[in-house]
Amino acid sequence: MEIVIAIVIGILVTIGTYLLLSRQLLRIVFGSSLISHAVNLLIITSGGLKKGNAPLLGEGKIGFTDALPQALILTAIVINFAVTAFVLVLSYRSFKANGTDDMEKLRGNEHE
């Protein structure tokens, strides 16, 4: 299972990177979103897969999967939401202000 997940992570990162390198703002946002999914998967998998029960003590079971990566990812998901929202708004704002969403045309020139 770990090998499969590692490959899935690799594919997500590849696609995400490719999208990040593309010229259109919306694609760049998609790319960053995909990469953050990949990273979440990476973190949870490094805690070990299917190594125990859900980290809930109330059900009278023993042997839990690692709860720490889960807590980390929970934080990451919510932050990621905020970042995605911000980047989205930033990109459409920049589109409205500059009239283009082409990154090659959005180059910052030093003598502006």
Binding site: L41, I44, L49, K50, P55, L56, T65, I73, I77
Partner: peptide, 11 residues
């Protein structure tokens, strides 16, 4: 769904 499979209901 992955998270559910991996015993992470909160996630």
């Amino acid at each position: 769904l992955f998270f559910v499979l991996f015993q992470a209901p909160d996630l």
